[in-house]
Amino acid sequence: MASDLPAPTATAEDTDLILRQVLADVLGLPAERVAEFDEDSGLFGHLPELDSMAVATLLTEIEDRLDIVIEDDEVDGEMLETYGGLHTFVMTKRSDG
């Protein structure tokens, strides 16, 4: 499932799995659909389920499940536009933390 990710380390795969799980949980999408997401899969602005309340819930769940803190000013279009963007952001956060 994580074969097309840049850093195939245990942490990258673990982050990938948790991120996909949070997306499925928050957006109510079937696991099969979320499993098909690749780096370029569009999120904010592409998925009608992802409104501002859903983004807020998504970020709060990511914080709780991955034990990171996401500041308001880190949330921008680039980070939320694609699955790859979100994954990269979260990976950076985890390695910083």
Binding site: M53, V55, A56, L59, T60, D72
Partner: peptide, 22 residues
């Protein structure tokens, strides 16, 4: 935790309206 999610949603909604509140 309830407040954090609701405040964050508000920040995002305000941002869409061009406001920059934290």
């Amino acid at each position: 935790s309830l407040l954090r999610a609701m405040l964050r949603a508000k920040v995002l909604t305000l941002r869409e309206a061009g406001r920059d509140d934290t």
